[in-house]
Simulated assay, not measured.
Amino acid sequence: MTSREHAVLRLALDLAILTVRDNALQVLTITRGNAPFRSRPALPGGFLRDGEDLLAAAVRELREETALDGEPMHLEQLSAYGAPERDPRGRVVSVAYLAIVPDPPDPEPGSDAASAAWMPVARVRGRLAFDHDQILDDAVERVRSRLEFTTLATAFCGSTFTIGDIRNVYEVVWGRALDPRNFNRKVINTVGFVEPTGQKRIPHLGRPAVLYRHGGQKALNPPILRSHAAAA
């Protein structure tokens, strides 16, 4: 029979912070300096303090463990994770947050983090402490899905970008090559996805590329579906 006693638990926050660097989808990680899982990579996070708001706790933990400022980031709740054996220290439920940052600075370790670094998702997957592999998988799938139906790709690119930059985000996050002509036509013809700035990026070699900014819309209509994306 299931016990009718109420569970006594601690509440934690974990953060899946994603970016595109060096043509790879990367995640912010720390190396744990304390038990359990000492010396194992993990997502930044920690325990909620008395009288503290969830989002404030997530921002604090990010700052303490990596020296990155979460205030300007759009941190959104991803999910809650509460499997009974997820933490060997006792019953711990974690509320995970997701954020996407363009061109982030290198982190600096602090608190109980022995080190902090941006790591390719493909390299760190399967090595993370606790149930952070599941949190990371859920975060990546959330982003992959939202690229189909929203203008989220612009969040990876900063204030201005080329259509090639947007296509690179899709290719990196989805892990597949896209036909440049078809993709460029879809982006430019989708109202509110991007708008030209009137400026161009002048490369050292090659032709100048038109610079765009976010066009103000959040939803993509029509969507850019993974199942319909044409391979190069």
Rank of each mutant, 00 (worst) to 15 (best):
F37Y: 15
P72I: 11
I166Q: 03
R207F: 11
L15M: 12
E52T: 10
R207K: 15
A7W: 03
V172W: 06
T190G: 06
A229T: 02
V101Y: 02
V27M: 00
S227L: 12
G158D: 03
L62K: 09
I100M: 06
D22E: 14
S145I: 06
V140Q: 00
G70F: 04
T29R: 01
A113W: 02
P222W: 03
R207I: 13
Q26H: 12
N23L: 08
T66S: 09
V8P: 00
L78P: 07
L205D: 10
H74Q: 15
G33Q: 03
G216N: 12
P102E: 11
R63W: 15
T190V: 01
R40Y: 08
H74G: 08
T2Q: 14
A153D: 11
P196N: 02
P36G: 07
R125E: 14
D133C: 07
T150E: 02
R4V: 13
L43S: 01
R60V: 01
M1Y: 13
L225D: 01
H6M: 13
L68A: 05
V124R: 08
H74A: 15
V121P: 08
R10A: 11
L15A: 10
M73C: 05
R167V: 10
G51N: 06
A96I: 04
A122G: 13
R4T: 15
R21K: 14
I17P: 00
N23S: 14
A83W: 06
T29K: 00
F193S: 09
D69S: 10
F47D: 13
Q199H: 11
R49G: 11
E52V: 11
H6V: 14
N182P: 06
V140L: 05
Y81I: 10
A83Q: 14
A96K: 05
P196A: 12
P208M: 09
L25T: 04
P72Y: 07
V187D: 03
L147N: 09
A96T: 00
L78I: 01
H132K: 06
L75W: 10
T31V: 14
P104D: 08
Q217G: 09
D106L: 11
R167D: 09
E64K: 12
L147S: 02
A57E: 08
M1G: 15
G192P: 09
K186A: 13
F183P: 04
T29Q: 07
R40K: 12
N189R: 10
L55W: 06
A116Y: 08
R60F: 07
P223E: 00
A42I: 02
D103T: 10
V194A: 05
G82L: 12
A35C: 01
G46M: 05
A99F: 02
D106C: 05
G70L: 04
S227F: 00
G216K: 07
L54P: 04
G46Q: 06
T197W: 08
P180N: 01
G45W: 02
R49Q: 15
I17S: 03
D50P: 00
D133S: 06
A56Q: 12
R49P: 00
V93S: 01
L48G: 03
F47T: 14
G126N: 03
M119F: 11
R213N: 02
V169P: 05
M73V: 05
D138T: 06
V92K: 04
G110R: 07
E61D: 03
S79A: 15
L78G: 08
T31H: 02
R10E: 10
D179F: 04
D138V: 07
G164M: 00
